[in-house]
Every structure is written in structure tokens, then in C-alpha cells.
Amino acid sequence: MSSIAARLRTLPALTGDLPEVDPFSLSADPAEAFVEWLTVAIDAGVPEPHALAVATVDSAGNPSARVVLLTDVRDGCWVFATDARSEKARDLTADPRCALTVYWQPLGRQVRITGRAEHVPEAERRADFLARSPSSRASLIAAHPGESLASVEQMQQAVKRARDRVDREPGLVADDWQVWAVRAEQVEFWQGVSDRAHMRLQYRWDGVRWDRRLVSP
């Protein structure tokens, strides 16, 4: 066993006062159930409860995952934004199938969503960009995802120039800004339990309604 493996085995897991869950007390609609759990996480002070892992595959089937921020849950969709030049945007354009994961560690809760991503209307795309802080908009305008940089200072100067432009043009919206809505086909709610008798509740869309079942962890 390597030294890091030995050290990892000493780390505690599923610590703290984990909430008890009656799985069938959750809404029959997984989006509504998600909002219920998200609200609990926000009220409990979970750090960055809107952090969302997005997994995609490229045209060759190579997987990739990264963390973004969830911006909305509505109409059965989980919504996030990205740059059209980013790897995730290219992947979703080629293959809209994707998987999302949220983990609220202090509550021992995880939610997994799989489905297909679709673009939102232009008005919503623009509104999302303009709702962000001037500093955030400047950073997004200055960025060129994946391109090489000669130094840290190069990016800092690009952000400074972009911030000057944002201040001069407060209605400016980056052409490459995209907002994606993932329409769920399967959603799983996982509640960790200290004795390891974990709870897994799966929702599957059968084309007409959501089928809900409890499964073994």
C-alpha cells in the first residue's frame, strides 16, 4: 500500500449529523425534489451548494468532467452557462447527452442527473450574461478557453482591458456566451447514512411520466 493510500484510509467519511430521509416524502417530480434538497443545503450554509459537475464526451467518445455553477432549475431542466469555445460546449454540440452531479458534503447528499442539453432562447442567454457582475463579465470577455498564455500577467491585462470596455458598454453581451438547459431523463437522490445503509431513490422518465423506485446502494 502506498503512503497516500494508507493516509486516505485514515480519513473519516460521512461524518456529522446527517439528516434522516423518508424517500417517498420527496416530490414525485425530481426537479421539485431537487429544489427541496437544494433549499435545505442553502439554509444549512453548505459552501457553494450550486456547484455542479458536468460530464460530457467528445466526438471520439473520450469523457471529460468539470465543475460549473448551476444557474436555475425550471421546466424539468438544470441550467448552466459556458463559453461556446470551451471543451464542454464543443462536446455538447457534437453529442448533447451529459451527466450532472451535485454533492452536499455536510449533509451527506448527492444528486445525479442524466439527460440531454439544449440551448435556451436568445433573450435568456443575454439576460444571463448581463445578470453577472461587471468583473465576471470582463473575465468572460477576456478569456479564450484553452488557448496558451505566455504569462499570468497576460491574462490580468486582458481582464483589465475587458473591464474598461464593460464599464463603457454596460449592455455588452459576449457573442460566444451560451446557456444550456439539461432536460433530465434520469435523476437519482442519494442520502449517506453513518451505518452505510445508504438511501438511493431513482426517477426514470418513461416518455409519459416519472417512474420512481428505491434501489440498493
Rank of each mutant, 00 (worst) to 15 (best):
S3W: 10
S3K: 14
R7P: 09
L8P: 14
R9P: 09
T10F: 11
L14S: 10
T15C: 13
D22H: 12
S27W: 04
S27C: 09
D29T: 02
P30G: 07
P30D: 07
A31N: 02
F34E: 02
E36M: 09
T39G: 09
V40M: 07
I42V: 15
G45F: 02
P47S: 07
H50M: 11
A51T: 07
L52I: 02
L52A: 09
A53I: 02
S59K: 08
S59C: 06
A60M: 12
A60K: 14
A60Q: 14
R66V: 11
R66A: 14
L70W: 09
D75E: 09
C77M: 09
C77D: 04
V79D: 04
A81F: 08
R85P: 06
R85C: 07
R90M: 05
D91Y: 12
T93E: 08
D95R: 08
R97S: 07
R97G: 04
C98R: 11
Y103R: 02
Y103K: 01
W104Q: 06
L107E: 03
G108C: 00
G108D: 01
Q110W: 02
V111R: 09
V120H: 00
P121W: 03
E122D: 10
E124V: 14
E124T: 14
R126E: 15
A127T: 00
A127Y: 08
F129I: 15
F129Y: 11
R132C: 06
R132S: 13
A138N: 00
S139W: 15
I141Q: 04
A142F: 14
G146T: 10
E147A: 13
S148H: 13
S151C: 06
V152T: 10
V152G: 09
E153S: 14
Q154H: 14
M155K: 13
Q156W: 06
A158P: 02
A158S: 06
K160L: 10
R161T: 05
D164K: 00
L172I: 05
V173D: 06
D175T: 11
D176E: 14
W177Q: 08
V179E: 11
W180Y: 15
A181G: 04
E185I: 01
V187F: 02
E188D: 08
W190V: 09
Q191M: 06
V193R: 10
D195G: 00
D195N: 11
A197I: 14
R200T: 04
Y203M: 04
Y203V: 00
D211Y: 01
L214T: 10
